[in-house]
């Protein structure tokens, strides 16, 4: 479980303030909001890249606010996936296991096992520069999940995909979450991602999480007004 209490992080003139947020174990929580409202800052603060001035971040009851990223057990999947360009897809996925000092045989078993689930067996020897957007996304997700993190933080992971691939990736992540039950915080500006992936969402504006509730409740709230056209489209698709 991830808990955030009275958090305040200042970056120049920008201030991120999260009063109270609880994400249950195994929950896929989406933070929705327009560009520039501080979604990435939120990810960076939870991931330990930015240290907040005030407040607490608890993971499974343990205060990790002052811990460095490597001690938090939280894996990050950034918007551009940040695959290590000098390593093959296999070595990217194996990276976290090698850091933990696992034997190469065990690493191979785990990487190949996960690669099968992610349907990326064919591309394991390739370098990131020769992978497609969808393949990169899968490698980045596999790299994050293989270390069995307490949670993964996804920063607009579908943003660089074209609409067809984006839909495919959404259902892939949804299926993956159903099977693996990992805890995730996914930030996006795309309401269709939020609708497809999460039962409960948060909505951010100007550095503050001003709504937390079910997607249905969000749709009926005043915060959904800027998304009205997209929401109509989603409803039409469901019908």
């Amino acid at each position: 479980m991830i808990e955030i209490k009275g958090l305040k992080a200042k970056l120049g003139s920008f201030v991120l303030e999260i009063e109270n947020l609880k994400i249950e174990k195994g929950e896929y929580f989406v933070v929705l909001g327009p560009s520039g409202v501080g979604k990435t800052v939120l990810i960076d603060v939870i991931g330990g890249i930015i240290v907040p001035q005030k407040g607490k971040i608890l993971i499974d009851g343990k205060d990790v606010t002052k811990l460095p990223p490597e001690k938090r057990g939280i894996a990050i999947v950034p918007q551009d996936y940040a695959l290590f360009p000098h390593m093959s897809a296999y070595d990217n996925i194996a990276y976290g296991l090698r850091i933990r000092g696992l034997s190469e045989d065990l690493i191979k078993d785990k990487v190949l096992g996960l690669a099968k689930i992610f349907e990326i067996e064919r591309i394991l020897s390739k370098k990131p520069s020769s992978l497609s957007g969808g393949e990169r996304q899968r490698v980045a997700l596999a790299r994050a999940l293989i270390v069995n993190p307490k949670a993964i933080l996804l920063d607009e992971p579908l943003a660089s995909l074209d609409p067809r691939l984006r839909m495919k990736a959404r259902s892939f992540i949804k299926g993956l979450h159903k099977d693996l039950k990992f805890t995730a915080i996914h930030v996006t500006h795309n309401i269709a991602d939020a609708a497809a992936l999460s039962r409960r969402i948060g909505y951010m504006e100007e550095g503050k999480l001003i709504f937390i509730g079910t997607f249905e409740k969000f749709v009926r709230s005043r915060y959904a007004v800027p998304y009205i056209n997209e929401i109509k489209e989603i409803i039409n698709k469901i019908r």
Binding site: D44, G48, F84, R143
Partner: peptide, 27 residues
């Protein structure tokens, strides 16, 4: 070297020095 590569490496469990030797230095 994109600092995000280092951030990801650290989130995967590598400390600052290991991230430097395995990610930053080779790049």
């Amino acid at each position: 070297v994109d600092p995000m590569l280092e951030a990801v490496s650290r989130s995967l469990g590598a400390g600052a020095l290991r991230t430097f030797t395995r990610i930053t230095l080779p790049l």
